[in-house]
Structure formats: structure tokens, C-alpha cells
């Protein structure tokens, strides 16, 4: 792995981390506000997190 590759991987991880944090935070907020909708919020959260994860992995592998 060359240095640009590593920097790129780091950038991807930073971006994905910010995204996952936002998703998780918003989901927690939603759950706190409406505890009865926990199941629905969790499902939606996992789907969005999975999509983001797919994107991040795609980018990581393109750079590998």
C-alpha cells in the first residue's frame, strides 16, 4: 500500500465515520423522542448504515 492509498483510505474512514455517527445519533434522538417507534427506527438505521457501509467498502476496495 502506497502513501496516497493510505491517505485515501483514511479519508474514506473519516467520512464514513462522520456519516455513521450522524445516522446513529439521529436514530438515538428519534428513539428518545418516540420510544414506541424503536423497532422501525432501528430497521431504517441499519438499512441506511448498511448502504453507507457498502459505499465506504466500495471506495476502499477501489483504492486497494
Amino acid at each position: 500500500m502506497t502513501v496516497p492509498n493510505l491517505v485515501g483510505a483514511g479519508l474514506i474512514v473519516i467520512g464514513a465515520g462522520i456519516g455513521l455517527g450522524k445516522i446513529g445519533g439521529s436514530a438515538m434522538e428519534g428513539i428518545a423522542r418516540q420510544p414506541e417507534a424503536t423497532g422501525k427506527i432501528q430497521t431504517a438505521m441499519i438499512i441506511i448504515a448498511a448502504l453507507l457501509e457498502g459505499l465506504a467498502f466500495g471506495a476502499l476496495f477501489l483504492g486497494k
Binding site: 448498511a50 457498502g54 467498502f57 466500495g58 476496495f61
Partner: peptide, 14 residues
Amino acid sequence: LIKPFSLLVRLFAN
């Protein structure tokens, strides 16, 4: 492309 790719890469990578 994107849907199957994200499916296969996610599982493999994780």
C-alpha cells in the same frame, strides 16, 4: 451494479 456490488462487498469485507 451498485446493489449487488454493495451486497457482495459488504459481506465479504465485514
